[in-house]
Amino acid sequence: MSNTKEIIARNVFFLSAIASAVMILAILVLMIALGIPLFKAGNFLAIWTGPWAPHKGLYGIWPMISGTLWIALLATALCMPLSLGASFVITSLGGPRLRRMLGTMVRFMTGIPTVIYGFVGIFLLVPLVREGIGGPGMCVLTAGMVLAILISPTMILFVTDSLLAVDLSYVQAAKALGANRVQRLLYVMVPRATGGMAAGIILALGRALGDTLIALMLAGNAIQAPRALLEPARTLTAHVALVKAADFDSLEFRSIFACGIVLYLFATTATVAVRVMLRKREVPT
């Protein structure tokens, strides 16, 4: 009696795990299946690298890929000094009370909804950029700046954790040799935590690539590959969000599945990279 119960329970647990895992593959398969008309319609390569010119029947998503890369890389580049600086203060430089306060602040930041960053960005930052620096205001730079703040808690939490995971005996040995706080941080902790720090940066980049609302609200959404920071751009995510489902069979509509596939691949690459880097960290040195 209780044996059957055990077996049933075991199978229920197993099936739930299978069901959740199948979702991940189902998402990819469904997008490829729905994108097939687009892939068959024209030059396969042109979908990814060609221009977007609906009047000529060209539905290349290169402008969106390029917009995504510009905005996400800019955000990561802006976020890196901020996050590394804050992590250094949280792990070594600050006093105990300051560390706790900063820690609480970063945790609070993880809970701020994306759409609110976008809302404040539109009414506070866009006019500032437009009048202070020039251009239309809604551009790569504005979106990149807000996105940098959005992804900073990810990077800070990750980097802080990898710095604190460094074996205490190394840090204490350095202390015994007379190294001060800064020296212990720079010459002992940072070199031993590079894998984890790099993983944190990749993870933050992954979040920046996948974010929808900031770019949708702040980047202007013009379909063109940006060539400067003050030009508007459209990301893959914003393109998916903006296409109106007026005609399910049009190639224009099908292009959102190509965007979905690229986003899926970007995200999966980032995830795999993070896993590989963390595995390296676990190897005892």
């Binding site: 959740s20 979702m23 991940i24 189902a26 998402i27 469904l30 997008m31 992954g206 690539l209 996948g210 974010d211 929808t212 995510t237 998916v240 969000a241 959102i256 599945f257 979905g260 986003l263 899926y264 995200a267 999966t268 980032a270 995830t271 795999v272 993070v274 896993r275």
Partner: peptide, 14 residues
Amino acid sequence: DILAGIPSIVIGLF
């Protein structure tokens, strides 16, 4: 891990 990293818009598209 892969599922956790997939952008929410892709899940919306799904």
